[in-house]
Amino acid sequence: MIVLLPPSETKRAGGDGPALDLEALSSPELHPVRAELIDDLVGLAADRDASRTALGLSAGQDAEIDRNAALRSAPTMPALHRYTGVLYDALDVDSLRGASAARAAARLAVVSALFGLVRADDPIPAYRLSAGSRLPGRPTLAARWRPALEPVLSGLAERELVVDLRSGSYAGLGKVPGAVTVEVVAERADGRRSVVSHFNKAHKGRLARALAATRSEPSDAAAVAGVARRAGMRVERQGDHLTVVVPA
């Protein structure tokens, strides 16, 4: 089983790994797109106004542009430890130990706007690029990633069950045929439901933690739902789609 996570806008600074080496990353089929995007971001960083517009930054966030300028020389750390924020707080991978930590490293992966599919231990630097960013004079990131990323994701799905926890814009970078998909809804006392926005990430982080740590090997959506229920989550299943129901 592989659990696909979205990245986060926020990322830990620094790292104790060597500078970025594409050959050290998994999925070498993605190296050409990765290299092009790194070149684009490093070049764009020389023009702060253009960078702010393309990346959706304010003048107070120029440190993010500096990160992009240093992509080739900045220290790296494992991808799963690079990302921060609500989902990753709920996942809390640092607290996993022993076999649970090993299972998390094997099962968790991130689909990144800069690197495509990265596995938990892939060493990456801090950067700023979102799935919705529009780099000047370039096609959309979805148009650039789909031809390279979809075959990789399809190959993954042929070998293992994929549980796709990505948000819409990151799911748009590459489809995964046959993946188990998940949404989170809030239910009011009268039974009315609405899609959860911000806290959607926290509940998906809880589910990712349960799936990462479980000793079982889920092979279909029903088994994934079972893991979630054992973790105390209320889950409904319709085919390969799961709905996590939380109180409003």
Rank of each mutant, 00 (worst) to 15 (best):
E9V: 12
K201R: 14
P177M: 11
R144Y: 03
S8D: 12
P136V: 11
L57A: 12
D190A: 11
V235T: 08
P78M: 05
T10A: 15
E150Y: 10
A126W: 01
D220F: 11
V162D: 04
L44Y: 01
T214W: 01
L80A: 06
D21Q: 12
S133I: 00
T10Q: 15
S154K: 14
G17M: 08
D49H: 14
V245D: 07
S112M: 03
P123V: 02
V245T: 13
T181A: 10
L129K: 02
V93I: 13
G155C: 02
D92I: 07
R72Y: 09
A157L: 06
R234D: 14
P139R: 13
A248T: 09
A208I: 06
S216V: 13
P177L: 13
A106S: 13
E187H: 14
V3R: 00
P139N: 12
D190M: 09
Y83E: 05
S26G: 13
H241T: 12
A231R: 06
Y127M: 13
V93G: 00
R34H: 10
S133W: 02
R192D: 13
V3F: 00
A148Y: 10
R192Q: 14
D190Q: 09
R159M: 07
T76Y: 01
H241E: 11
L91H: 03
V176E: 01
A90D: 09
L25W: 01
A74G: 05
V33I: 09
A142V: 05
R188A: 15
V224K: 00
R166T: 03
A59F: 09
L25H: 02
H241A: 15
R237V: 04
P6M: 07
S51H: 08
L44W: 04
L117Q: 00
M1G: 02
V235R: 04
K175M: 07
E183I: 11
S167C: 05
A225E: 02
A210D: 08
S194F: 10
R103E: 01
L153C: 06
I38W: 00
S154A: 15
T76A: 10
A179N: 07
A225H: 00
D89Y: 05
G15N: 04
G56C: 07
G191Q: 12
L161M: 11
T181L: 11
R128L: 08
N68L: 09
G239Q: 07
S216W: 09
K11G: 06
P123G: 04
L41H: 05
R144L: 08
L87W: 04
E236M: 08
V227H: 01
R128P: 02
V110N: 00
A99Q: 13
G132Q: 13
A248P: 03
A222F: 05
L87R: 05
V224C: 03
A102N: 11
A13R: 15
I124Q: 04
A208V: 06
A105S: 10
A104V: 01
R193W: 11
T84G: 11
D164Q: 09
Q238E: 15
E183T: 15
A79G: 11
L71C: 10
V184Q: 06
H203G: 02
L141N: 01
R138V: 02
P218H: 06
I124T: 03
L211K: 04
R128W: 08
E183Y: 04
D16F: 11
E29V: 08
E217Q: 13
A79I: 05
G172D: 12
V185M: 13
F115D: 00
